[in-house]
Design a protein around this nucleic acid. Structure first.
Lengths: 247, 247
DNA sequence: CGGAGCCTTGATGTCAGTCAATTTATGTGG
DNA sequence: CCACATAAATTGACTGACATCAAGGCTCCG
């Protein structure tokens, strides 16, 4: 199943087998997107959404002076632009980080789900709100944390999300983000990213050696940036709303 | 109609009269919330959502050292915690700014809408994604703008949103945010907010004189922070998806 | 009239940006 | 397999925007 990673570790277990099949059928066949390829540009009308199977994708807003702010990083199992279904046009660009394997979902299929599968629809809604929850935490990160804390916080988030979909082994992840990318995520200069990354390395907390990320001391990493992963809704299984299926 | 401001200036005109009535019926009677009263705390299970009729409400994340980051400001016509319907518990606190008039919507009523009114459901989904779009712009603001630009950018956003719901007259708005609040929004210290606010005043661009905000030169304000309000989807009327109503 | 909360202003310190140069990977074609 | 070109990472020196500390002045309300 292509969609087996969707909300894995989160609400996926709230889906019935029939719903999983509906979702799987809604997704087309896989396509490979070359590294750094732009999938959608701000303002374009969208008639399909994109499900990420392998690799990373980035959402970003470009400023007028060429300064870029990455607003979301997507990992396998994420819908990259499901919000495009309800919004019709995006307010930002989306691109692949490295090479990415994706599958498209026609909005027609999503309309059918809205009409016939209210419970599944609510789960899809939830998944877009998970992005919003991450956005909020990013706002906190940028507004209230120091440069070193921001980087640590981002690494914690990435680790948690990748662990959900089984892509962390021995606290090692494949993360092909450049220091420039990390700068665009953390809202600091690439030179300073280099310095704080060096500090983390020297403190034997985490080592960024593209394309691999080694986390040596996860607890220390979390402690230094007051990371509380509850916004990722990892224990969502406790809060499944079955009401929509009862009737 | 209590809900007449909902998505006013945005997708409201996409709703049929029948749908407007369904929405209106879903909303209970109005309640007054005292200034600074906390409506919901992080982690609480939600069984209803809140529609804001009058006043302002704030969503914020508190750090460990008492440092607060406001992640969203709500104006009349907004659902404050509609995402609580799909998420069941919130990842942040919500409070009133000044006195606020609100109305509750039981999640039971929202479930009914999900089941019976797919088009209206999609519009509700859209409204939560509008919050996400604002979150993204806030990320850009915090990550890439200077202190003065951040304040200008926030003022532009507030102006645009308040104008949608008819609460701006002669470029004057009622905004009872303190400088501390503005600091918690812009991710800078209250002292520095005072300084950049003074700069805007002296440049005759905008004057913050709580509880009123006067914008003297809107164009200059927008120019100085590269404000592009398209993320607020003000011309959403162009992109209405009627497919869900056709069948 | 007194106090609390908010706003204002000045002095000083620091975190992170910018500029500039070097080293290390990555990749391409001969 | 090596030479070269390009992108990425690293390091140091200098600068500046904003934080912090500290003190004083409003303004509203009981």
């Amino acid at each position: 199943m292509i969609t087996e990673l969707f909300l894995e570790g989160r609400l996926r277990q709230a889906l019935s087998e029939a719903e999983k099949q509906v979702l799987e059928d809604a997704v087309g066949r896989c396509v490979i997107l070359p590294a750094r390829e732009v999938l959608i540009r701000k303002g374009e009308l969208a008639e399909r959404s994109t499900y990420l199977v392998e690799g990373y994708m980035l959402r970003y807003i470009d400023g007028i002076d060429g300064d870029r702010q990455i607003v979301c990083v997507h990992v396998p199992g994420d819908f990259v632009d499901l919000h495009g279904f309800a919004m019709k046009r995006l307010d930002h660009d989306v691109c692949a980080l490295g090479e990415a394997k994706i599958a498209y979902v026609p909005h027609k299929a999503l309309s059918d789900i809205m009409r016939n599968e209210p419970h599944l629809a609510r789960i899809l809604w939830f998944s877009t709100l998970l992005d919003a929850a991450m956005h909020r935490e990013w706002i906190f990160r940028l507004g209230r944390l120091s440069a070193k804390e921001r980087l640590a916080h981002f690494i914690c988030e990435l680790h948690t999300r990748m662990a959900f979909v089984g892509l962390v082994e021995n606290n090692i992840l494949r993360v092909p983000l450049t220091q420039q990318d990390l700068a665009d995520i953390c809202g600091i200069s690439p030179i300073h990213i280099n310095r704080v990354a060096a500090e983390l390395r020297e403190a034997e907390i985490a080592t960024l050696a593209r394309p691999m990320l080694h986390i040596h001391d996860l607890q220390a990493l979390k402690d230094m940036c007051q990371f509380d992963g509850s916004y990722l809704y990892g224990e969502g299984r406790l809060h499944v709303d079955s009401e929509l299926r009862l009737k």
